[in-house]
Amino acid sequence: MIMTLLRLFYEFFKTGLFSVGGGMATIPFLQHMGEKTGWFTNGDLTTMIAVSESTPGPMGVNMATYVGFKICGVVGAVVATLGLIAPSIIVILIIAGFLQKFRHSKSVEAVFSGLRPASTALIASAGLSVAWSVFTVANQLSPDSLPSIRWRAVILAAAVFVCMKWTPLKKLHPILFIAAAAVVGIIFQF
């Protein structure tokens, strides 16, 4: 039990250390982990991804919790999650410490002046990728032809966007729009 927990921590520590980016970046590492340890199959992994995507919480964290729970119950879930976030905490605390010291240096300011528009662009790009996967569905019969568009999803997204920009609703918490969209999805069988 202790050995399994240590192994679990170690494997997720590695995943946290080497996967750079969003939760999706952890998937190749998890695939490898499953093959090496025999803890879960690729089929299990698909289920875990589906559950992690459809529940609240950052996807990468959800995946770690799920795998940990499958291997060692609640303790496993905690250990795997701590393993995943430990490298982030260590590395970011070191960087944040430096940043605080040099925040007002002209070099750091200049670097961030270049970083900010790039960071905004990367967030926009991630948004476009999400939009592409939500708004289109690949054509099953002829994979090479253009994918068809899910118009209902496009209309719902546009409606949410307009509502969030509309002054009377602007102040509402974003989670309310998410909840409303979930209800619309259920009612109209998205």
């Binding site: 289920t47 589906a50 559950v51 995507e53 459809s54 529940t55 905004t120 967030i123 926009a124 991630a126 948004g127 999400v130 939009a131 939500v134 708004f135 999803a153 496009v154 719902l156 997204a157 546009a158 409606a159 949410v160 966007f161 969030m164 920009k165 974003p174 729009f177 998410i178 409303a180 969209a181 979930a182 209800v183 619309v184 999805g185 259920i186 109209f188 069988q189 998205f190």
Partner: peptide, 26 residues
């Protein structure tokens, strides 16, 4: 959990909203 139709429908709606949320944020 993930294969209940009601979860799948809700998630499809949520995903559409997330696109709008990210757009507003950007």
């Amino acid at each position: 959990f993930a294969s209940y139709p009601v979860v799948a429908h809700a998630l499809a709606g949520i995903n559409a909203a997330v696109v709008a949320l990210i757009a507003v944020s950007v």
